[in-house]
Write a protein that binds this DNA or RNA. Sequence first.
DNA 1: CATCGAATGTCGGGTGTCCGACGAATCAGT
DNA 2: ACTGATTCGTCGGACACCCGACATTCGATG
Lengths: 225, 225
Amino acid sequence: MVPALEQHAAWLAKSLGRTDYLPMRPDDAVALAEAGVVVNKYKGTHLFREGDFANACYIIEEGDVELYRRSGSGRSVVSRIGPGAVVGDIAMFQERPYLSSARAVTGAVVLRLERDRLVPLLLARPVLAMRWLVNGLSQLESTQQRIIRLMNRTVLEQVAGLLDDEQDGFGEVLLSQATIAELLGASRQSVNEALSYLRSDGAIETGYRRITVLDTERLSLASAK
Amino acid sequence: MVPALEQHAAWLAKSLGRTDYLPMRPDDAVALAEAGVVVNKYKGTHLFREGDFANACYIIEEGDVELYRRSGSGRSVVSRIGPGAVVGDIAMFQERPYLSSARAVTGAVVLRLERDRLVPLLLARPVLAMRWLVNGLSQLESTQQRIIRLMNRTVLEQVAGLLDDEQDGFGEVLLSQATIAELLGASRQSVNEALSYLRSDGAIETGYRRITVLDTERLSLASAK
DNA sequence: CATCGAATGTCGGGTGTCCGACGAATCAGT
DNA sequence: ACTGATTCGTCGGACACCCGACATTCGATG
């Protein structure tokens, strides 16, 4: 076994959750890593497109991926996911076409898992199936929370909440205002107005494709309201 | 084995999806039915409340259940689910408190599954775990679709879409306007205005806690826009 | 350093929705 | 049939948001 494979195995074990009551033996993770292929995706390329038949799913190891659908004329962003997320598994398990397109917005490293190899593996190793289950349900939970964040909230509150969630270790969010607007289902102008307010409040600093969080306190204040 | 148990087993097999590549042996369904307890819930009673520690999950066999959370002052409806849906499993698998309350809005029959009995069962029978997984992911899909339905859509379009989805075999939707408003995150008045428009258009008829769909064609026309 | 595409900041006009309020209609219980 | 509680229908004012438009600024590319 190559060292890289071991590394991926360890990474997978961490990514699929840390539930104590589901002890994961090392060979479980290794088996999963062996079943997949590590793929390097360049910025802007697609993992899959809406309508393609779902033969495989992907686990994101590095980078950000955007999920979107055509809706009428334009496209609407369903969600944006990062390392640890599993994508395409819904359609894959149901043996149907993907219901959204997945595009790497940064350079990304993903693990591609073919349906024909994954399903037998999960059936043979119940612990992996259970982990996968818990992981998928966690995703469901965060999606539901996003619904709540969208409902009955002004753009200002939504923007503040998003910045609070998305900031990295240095308090930076590297998104254009247009992208934020798409994520929230708002217009770019309204997002700009909200950012202006937060800036004048001293909660953030804004730059080109970059927002720096200065005061998390004020931010969550504007978010909760 | 009592006849009622057989019936529940058959029902469970149907409810957890019909994926051909996951053949479910009869004893799988029976084992699942045996692991749970059938509970009768009267209108208005709670299956569980937000914050309670999640010891069990529920499969709904009859009736409708409403999921809601406290948000600030009032409560906001997360979703409304019917027969076939599984609820409470997210928190249960994660060993955390329930993140929303579940209340029977009609009389309901549910199967209560204790965590301590279910987890070993799923580990012993991978097919069941996989079915559960596919079912949970389907729920995730419909939640995502609901997000899309909420974003960038007028109340009229949302109401038309909801009626199209929720009508039963006779084209009837038995919900009060206030409930519809909660489901969509809109005000009762706006829902009323949308219904008035659809009524004058000849697409629906309205009554006390009842809406009858007359013309599905016009409805989907108003929904798509 | 010149150029061009992309992103930001800002302005009015138009409108969809919320909110409070009120009366009419419907249902359930004594 | 009377009564109280719930639901429906409707109005006008307030306001957050969308949209189009335009100038400005930033960053990559040669």
